[in-house]
Design a protein around this nucleic acid. Structure first.
Length: 428
DNA sequence: AGCACA
């Protein structure tokens, strides 16, 4: 028996059905508007909005077939077409006899939006751009992004349904403004539905997920992608292997960074055993060895993305090295072993490279220094632009203070009293 | 402006 298989997709005249197919609807036509439209002819018992590729079609189902017939007949002979918000709506009998009432989660209003970014370069749209776009409608609590078969998607959490709805109405089907995208990035449009979620779980700040309500949330080691060094562990499920040795690369090195500067910066978090500096790809990198992994983790989270000098100069990017023990052959201006009993090292040279004051006080270690604050943030410039964690409010230090016990004694050489550098001490 | 479901 093949009763329906040879039916054409549609005809100009469908056999009557209590289900009507509507097209040319305005964007985001609501169920209420559809009920309103059908009300003069009978009782609308079910609707389905946002149908079709453009989501500008819908179905309404009347209680009774005659009601549907009345509506079709009326508009067939009316001089005024059916309208929603002034837009002409075209009606016909549906080729089905009832609306399958799967109200998908996409139709249930909620405070979390499911956003699909469409376009060749959809993946080039950063979470920061999304944040910017959606923040226009209210405070964005959290964003997570992920890849599904549907493509590049994001969940955007607002505080309430109203805010989410205003964002959805305004942005669904729209393109991300050009000026927010890099030159070579093609058009990216947004398709938005409601998500069934009400509260997203964000374990780490990363390039894939953000919790804007919690600046103290740990930063995923993989969060910083500007140097393309790390790309694992996005959900906080998997992190790059931690190490007691950090690899620091210095970006925008407008001013010299010496071994002593690095030592000062990194010693704020605990004993630095060894440092080796070297040039790589035209930039300066350094390996900094702590005695344990924990200290390195604290230092990395505190320093990553921050600048040694105000003004965005000498920005640090830090990853874990695969080394565990550096082999320092000779102590010189590029490498040093602070654990050596009698290191033949000179006193630290004058650190006169500071572009502003000519003294090293400008940069002082993070971790709760209070003695010489010259800037409201305690000297560490907020990471700029991409990778910004959006923290900094409240005057709290977003990263942990290192244990003061281990940060106050240096190697046997003992030539650099840390107090001079405003290293972390007990808070007063 | 032309028929949904995940």
């Amino acid at each position: 028996m093949s009763s329906v298989s040879s039916q054409p997709q549609f005809r100009y005249t469908q056999p009557p059905s209590k289900v009507l197919h509507l097209r040319n609807l305005p964007w985001e036509c609501t169920e209420e508007e559809l009920i309103e439209l059908g009300k003069p002819f009978g009782t609308v018992v079910n609707t389905k909005c946002n149908v079709g590729a453009n989501r500008n079609q819908a179905f309404i189902e009347f209680e009774d077939l005659n009601q549907a017939i009345q509506m079709i007949s009326y508009y067939a002979s009316s001089s005024e077409p059916a309208q929603v918000r002034g837009k002409t709506v075209y009606l016909q009998y549906s080729n089905r006899q009832e609306i399958v009432n799967n109200k998908t989660t996409a139709d249930v209003v909620g405070n979390v939006l499911l956003v699909t970014v469409e376009g060749e370069d959809a993946r080039m749209v950063s979470i920061d751009v999304l944040h910017l776009v959606f923040s226009a409608f209210g405070f964005v609590h959290k964003i997570t992004t992920f890849e599904k078969t549907a493509g590049y998607q994001a969940l955007v959490q607002f505080s309430d349904e109203e805010t989410a709805t205003s964002a959805k109405n305004a942005l669904d089907g729209r393109s991300i403004p050009r000026y927010l995208l890099a030159e070579q990035v093609g058009q990216c449009s947004l398709k938005i539905t409601y998500s069934a979620h009400t509260d997203l779980t964000v374990k780490f700040q990363s390039h894939r997920s953000r919790d804007y309500t919690n600046p103290y949330l740990p930063i995923a080691p993989s969060a910083i992608d500007s140097t393309g060094q790390v790309a694992v562990g996005v959900d906080g499920k998997k992190m790059e292997p931690e190490s007691n040795v950090l690899l620091a690369s210095i970006e925008n090195m407008q001013y010299a960074v010496t071994l002593d500067v690095l030592h000062m910066v990194f010693a704020a978090f605990g004993d630095v055993q060894k440092i080796a500096m070297f040039d790589k790809n035209g930039g300066l990198q350094a390996l900094i060895q702590y005695k344990d992994v924990q200290t390195a983790v604290v230092a990395k989270e505190a320093l990553e993305g921050h600048c040694i000098y105000d003004g965005g100069f000498c920005k640090l990017h830090i990853t874990y090295s695969r080394h565990t023990d550096l082999s320092i052959k000779v102590n010189n201006d590029r490498s040093r072993d602070y654990t050596m009993p009698n290191p033949p090292v000179p006193m630290p040279q004058q650190l006169g490279q500071n572009p502003y004051t000519g003294n090293p006080q400008q940069y002082h270690a993070a971790g709760g220094s209070h003695q010489q604050q010259q800037s409201p943030q305690g000297g560490w410039v907020q990471p700029g632009g991409q990778g910004s964690m959006g923290m900094g409010g409240g005057g709290h230090n977003p990263y942990m203070a290192p244990p003061s016990s281990s940060s106050m004694h240096y190697g046997p050489g003992g030539h650099m009293p840390p107090q001079h550098y405003g290293g972390p001490g007990p808070m007063h």
